[in-house]
Nucleic acid binder design. Structure first.
Lengths: 209, 209, 209, 209
DNA sequence: CATGAATGAGCGTTCATTCAT
DNA sequence: TATGAATGAACGCTCATTCAT
């Protein structure tokens, strides 16, 4: 069987196996890193033979791509809840940040796994396989949230692209911090980032609520 | 020949070879990543045989450690210039950010190489070799700059540790951005980050709630 | 697959492969020596790829350890038959010598392989891995056979340890002789050694000064 | 310069260098074994560069051949003293054994080095380079001493070749014993071996002096 | 004479992948 | 479906040897 992304899994059993393998891949990536997460290591954690992994996925790269897809899907759903239309832009951006960091706090291994794959998976020519090639939908999404606020006049006149990059950087760095620094205070960090972004987006800093 | 860090290089020729190899290692790390930067690849770029690299360095780990040391040394010197004592804290922090991002703009491959090594080099037990274990001097340094401002009253009352993490995240993300996004405007980003940090550290948010 | 010594082989196929590889390793050790018996050479003789050897054994050291174990087990069984309890001590010692030299004559490559491994396998610190460290059970066993004879009065008063060393030296040297000297007469040598040892252990050297 | 064995060394300095290197090679062989005694290790012990060793000897094999030659020469001289013509055969054989074991006791490293080289140095085709090919002068010498005794009637009727092999085996094994067993009593062993050989060679065992 | 820079072949090992069962 | 046997390529590394200086 080949894993045609986007095609519905044939059976429940099959889907469950795939999920199980993806979960074990995430565990391995988070604990022993990209190079350490060999097929043998992932299979060992899943309690199956190496062949099974090759059977359900079209090789290691395909499996790691599904790790990305899986985590992005779940994180995206959690974030979408907090950035639903109809709210005022400031609340949307605040919700975006809080949802991102909350997901991080609840699923640190998932995020760590995504970071490992995104930073290391490469094509044979050496270029990043999942690198921000061209568009980067994650960044574009956040940038759009900021532009929405500017369009309605709720936000001031700042460089939306740059601020989006800054926010993503501030969010992404928290993953590594969480993994290695037991003293890291995620709640305090969330509060600070929200506060900083509010100041940065405020249309009238001197009359901030 | 062994690479006794801190010991004076025996000859000019030797030092030159070591620098050349380090430069090629940086190039390889930036272009094809940690796993792709094999001894063979580095040797190929240097136009020498694999044995030469083992001759000048005590193995791959030692070479990559020297890559870190080399870049940190040069970046640290550039940053130290802009954060010299005697200035007011706001200028120091601004200088810190500008120096970091300027180094990034001038030496993107060096920074990318450091990121590759720091994110991937692991000990035999699987733990990150250069990971922020315990103290993280880079972060502690920035945190201290912020605390200095708070101590003098130049800065307000914020969580210095969290802001330091935020700033480092905003700086570090710029490396990946620069490497993959040709439209990335480093100057605009620098300006925005400086402005955001100024607002975050401002001692007198007098209209703020 | 790991080679858990003492654990039952999982399948018949696996056990057969392991035996085949051990046999080829013995052949290689006997013919081209310790350094020449590389994984590639052993794999070549077995008609498989290098990876197979690593698959069935936990590296070269583990394989060579199993060579020792395998030969010792078979030789030990052959010797035990001839040194069964209940016989008089002189018969036991004679049986010991004859069984050793008979095994040598029937399995010269096996013994040569053991000699290669025992003489050359070293720990990372340089010390012999299978060297007579501390007790040397082979020597101790023979020494005990001699002491048993002394205890019953069947043997005279000689230095049992020294005679054991002498006998082992006389046995071990026959391996190299057999391998390189086509004129070596094993039967005559066995007869002489038995005769010499009988004189040395004789309880009644009544005409002796 | 090439080391044409048998040609007189050009200068005193040169000869001294060669002796120094041979001495260090012996040391290395005795301490870290055949594989561990690399050119680099030998050069390190001699306090010179690797090139020097290659300069004074025609490669590693040539150097190790000279190690053999050097030790054999010195041991042979010591043995010759004790086996001078004109003595009765029993004294000659006794002298041979005592001289061998005395040399071993006084120069254990030299003998250990010889054992390492003789057991491991091989030709490209895998055959032993210094193995007892064809004649084995050492063994033939001892065999002749025994035959001399038989010819004069001093010794009885035994298989001289076999007894020579036995004696050599008993002597050679003492080297390994001495190196690894601190409790080994060389004097006692020498006494036992001499006594055993006297019994074995005695023309009239029941009238032994 | 002596050095040390450099090579190139071979080492043991790992691992993604394939495939017969 | 699932296994595990097997491959083959690449890895980091060591070492005897060569050679310009």
């Amino acid at each position: 069987m080949r894993s045609d992304i986007g095609e519905r899994a044939r059976t429940f059993t099959e889907a469950a196996r795939r999920v199980q393998i993806i979960r074990c891949a995430i565990e391995a990536l988070a604990e022993v890193g990209y190079a350490g997460a060999s097929l043998a290591e992932i299979a060992r954690r899943a309690g199956v033979s190496k062949g099974v992994v090759s059977y359900y996925f079209d090789g290691r790269d395909d499996l790691l791509g599904h790790v990305l897809l899986d985590v992005y899907t779940r994180a995206g759903a959690a974030i979408a809840e907090r950035t639903a239309a109809g709210q005022d832009p400031a609340a949307v951006v605040r919700g975006y940040i809080e949802a991102n960091l909350a997901f991080l706090g609840e699923h640190p291994a998932d995020v760590a796994a995504v970071v490992e794959v995104a930073a290391n998976a490469r094509r044979p020519d050496g270029s990043l396989r999942f690198g921000p090639g061209g568009e980067d939908p994650v960044l574009a999404h956040l940038e759009q949230l900021l532009r929405d606020g500017q369009a309605t006049g709720a936000f001031g006149d700042f460089d939306a692209r740059s601020l989006a990059i800054l926010i993503r950087g501030a969010i992404d760095t928290a993953s590594g911090r969480l993994a290695t620094d037991p003293a890291f205070d995620l709640a305090a960090y969330t509060g600070l980032l929200v506060s900083v972004v509010e100041k940065a987006t405020n249309a009238l800093p001197w009359e901030q609520s």
